[in-house]
């Protein structure tokens, strides 16, 4: 921190960081406790981690969670990117505005309302609740965020580039794959990343549409936490925290590389 800050300011910020991180580190610390509660640290042990990896059901849930995140992220990215391209191609201002407003409905809606309405939807069309309903729901609530990430990139793209490509004999498909998509790539990456984090973080929507046989990590932790404290959850938390850091770091690495590449192309 810098000299621009007063001592009081520094102390306030330090306190904020302490408050924000303390619960997370508290959780991680007790994952190494040989006792069986989150108070009174007895001695160091890795047995709770052993429990996590020995519990096949838990491992399956972990893998399912990641699978749903990646798949729903991929589906949302495809639909959202195409949707953004579609929205940009709409000339009528009223229509474009309406589409954008409808696009944002799921972003601002409370999760519990999304979950409840999707539950009605899946029940009415007779879909079985489980992997498919969770996957579709996650893809559905991630589509609008992808659109919002891709749209600015499309809007800052020069239309003359597309005209040039078409004049030089490129087919529409070529224009899409070789001109448009490379230009909006950073937006697509950002959208995919956001979709994955939305999926991993979701509890409420999944809770409504998951049915009995299928579970994601959030829902599983909820049911474990309702029955009391199990330090296995702490071990999972630590693993999830580390995975989160790796994903965030990876995301910054990819976007920085994309930005550097872009700068190189422009130069």
């Amino acid at each position: 921190m810098t000299s621009k800050l007063s001592l009081g300011g520094k102390a306030y910020l330090a306190l904020m960081f302490l408050i924000l991180y303390a619960p997370i580190f508290y959780l991680m610390l007790y994952s190494f406790n040989s006792g069986d509660s989150m108070s009174g640290f007895e001695s160091f042990t890795l047995s709770h981690y052993a429990d996590v990896f020995a519990d096949t059901r838990l491992i399956v849930i972990l893998l399912d969670t990641v699978l749903v995140a990646l798949l729903s992220g991929f589906i949302a990215t495809v639909i959202g990117t195409l949707g953004a391209i579609g929205i940009v191609s709409v000339r009528n201002r009223w229509w474009r505005h309406t589409l954008l407003s409808l696009n944002n409905v799921l972003i601002v809606s409370p999760d519990v309302v999304i979950g409840a309405s999707f539950l009605i939807l899946f029940t009415l069309i007779g879909a079985k609740l489980g992997f498919a309903s969770v996957l579709l729901s996650h893809a559905a609530f991630s589509v609008p965020i992808v659109v919002l990430m891709v749209l600015p990139k499309l809007l800052e793209m020069k239309t003359s580039l597309i005209d040039a490509a078409l004049d030089l004999g490129a087919s529409r498909r070529d224009v899409l794959t070789r001109v448009v998509l490379p230009m909006i790539q950073p937006g697509i990456y950002a959208g995919f990343f956001m979709a994955i984090t939305y999926s991993l973080d979701d509890f409420a929507v999944t809770f409504f549409v998951t049915g009995n046989g299928f579970s994601t990590l959030s829902v599983e932790i909820y049911s474990m936490a309702r029955t009391g404290i199990t330090l296995t959850v702490n071990a999972i938390s630590t693993l999830v925290f580390l995975a989160t850091l790796i994903v965030v770091a990876g995301y910054y690495w990819v976007t920085n590389r994309a930005r550097a590449a872009e700068a190189e192309v422009r130069a």
Binding site: Y26, L27, M38, S39, G40, D201, S218, I221, I229, T244
Partner: peptide, 23 residues
Amino acid sequence: IPSWINLLLKTYAFIGILGLHGP
């Protein structure tokens, strides 16, 4: 970064922190 951590886990941490024998 703390906002990236799953909501459930943060809530769960407070069950320990605020508990009768917590810090």
